[in-house]
Amino acid sequence: MGVTIKEVAKAAGVAPSTVSRVIADNPRISPATKKRVRKAMKELGYHPNVNARSLVRSSTQAIGVVMPSSADKALQNPFFPEVLRGISTVAHDLEYSLLLSTGETEEEILEGVQRMVHGNRVDGVILLYSRLKDKVMEFLHEQNFPFVIVGKPNENIDTISHVDNDNIRASKEITEHLIGLGHHRIGFIGGSKDLAVTVDRITGYEQALNQAGLPVKKEYRVHTEFLKSGGRKAVHELFSLEEPPTGLVISDDLMSIGVINMLEEFGLYVPEDVSIVSFNNVYMAEVTRPPLTTVDINIYDLGAQACKCLVEKIQNKNEPAKRIIVPFEIKHRMSTQQWKRETSKRA
């Protein structure tokens, strides 16, 4: 049987009600008494009951973090550990714990979120994705439950707090980099078409092509998973075309690594035969061969800002919805070069 509040009270020389108030961080309890009670709790190995603490404080001091898929799949991509690092750093500083929710399907993810909300397991939720017509986002919005999206909501953009980059501008600028190097046949490899980030990056890519007077070819666009295997699949499609691209805009660094590996199987090399640009600037982008020219979206800051924004909403129910745009920066490395038709193997 675990240690009880009465035992802690006896060891600290206070009433059990005082121990409860210390657990609730009641401002009326003096710092000296709090220190003495917490010392007794630590020595006796007492851990407050989360449910009981919630009743006292009307707070779980916990934040739910919702992944877009199963942890096994999502955590293969360095984006998610890095955004979680930003969230957890701020959560720790503000004395919140994290509850991670995943699922193989949208229904499983929704069920997990419903359990968190209806079971009073968390004070608020961070969604690590933004999907078109997302049932989870609709549920949270209908429940008027505090939540923040890392990404851009497709609907109710003015009433849902979200933390994002200007993905349209970022994609336009990185595509213009390839155009400036003389590439006229530029492909796009992105994630699912129901993800807001994919829609925005396609928009920026097409804006750059249209502005340069270049054709927007449907066959140059491939949608696949944000995994290395997704990049390999995309190469099969694009480089089986009669006139394949000479440059690629790829929505994720992990995809890019798969692209580089598969291109070599086709006898093509980056950047000699194909120039590629990417997004995220995860740790592997700088050490892969060749190092990737990529958009640094400041993943850590996306997570940190999302957590700060959510805690503000939790602590003040009247906090207005916010749109926080985290700046991006293009990191120019060695995965692109001037297109020289006469020296290419595909000339």
Results as ranks from 00 to 15, higher is better:
residue 187 G to R: 04
residue 85 R to A: 15
residue 19 V to C: 08
residue 187 G to D: 06
residue 70 S to L: 06
residue 20 S to Y: 09
residue 282 V to C: 12
residue 215 P to W: 07
residue 113 V to N: 05
residue 167 N to P: 14
residue 108 E to L: 03
residue 257 I to L: 11
residue 235 V to D: 04
residue 327 P to M: 12
residue 22 V to Q: 06
residue 258 G to T: 00
residue 77 N to R: 11
residue 251 S to V: 06
residue 96 Y to M: 03
residue 93 D to E: 15
residue 210 N to W: 10
residue 189 I to Q: 00
residue 152 K to D: 10
residue 29 I to D: 08
residue 333 R to C: 06
residue 128 L to T: 09
residue 49 N to Q: 08
residue 198 T to D: 03
residue 234 A to M: 14
residue 129 Y to G: 00
residue 103 G to L: 01
residue 279 F to Y: 06
residue 8 V to P: 05
residue 235 V to H: 05
residue 69 S to E: 11
residue 265 E to Y: 03
residue 322 K to N: 06
residue 334 M to H: 15
residue 161 S to R: 07
residue 13 G to Y: 08
residue 61 Q to T: 09
residue 257 I to W: 01
residue 330 I to Y: 05
residue 323 R to F: 08
residue 243 E to Q: 12
residue 231 G to R: 06
residue 272 E to M: 03
residue 174 I to C: 09
residue 222 V to P: 00
residue 17 S to Q: 15
residue 205 Y to G: 05
residue 318 N to R: 09
residue 107 E to F: 00
residue 261 N to Y: 07
residue 6 K to H: 15
residue 203 T to V: 09
residue 303 G to N: 00
residue 208 A to P: 01
residue 191 G to H: 00
residue 235 V to S: 08
residue 139 F to Q: 02
residue 91 A to S: 12
residue 215 P to C: 01
residue 224 T to L: 09
residue 67 M to Y: 11
residue 262 M to H: 04
residue 276 I to C: 04
residue 231 G to C: 05
residue 204 G to R: 04
residue 296 D to K: 02
residue 91 A to F: 01
residue 223 H to F: 14
residue 44 L to V: 05
residue 29 I to A: 12
residue 118 H to T: 13
residue 281 N to P: 10
residue 256 S to Y: 02
residue 22 V to M: 03
residue 284 M to R: 09
residue 74 A to E: 15
residue 50 V to I: 10
residue 258 G to A: 02
residue 24 A to C: 15
residue 35 K to V: 09
residue 190 G to Y: 02
residue 333 R to F: 01
residue 156 N to Y: 13
residue 173 E to Y: 10
residue 234 A to P: 12
residue 57 R to A: 12
residue 143 Q to S: 06
residue 79 F to C: 08
residue 180 G to Y: 10
residue 44 L to K: 02
residue 48 P to L: 10
residue 2 G to C: 05
residue 217 K to C: 09
residue 219 E to P: 11
residue 292 L to W: 00
residue 215 P to R: 05
residue 228 K to W: 15
residue 32 A to C: 06
residue 347 A to M: 11
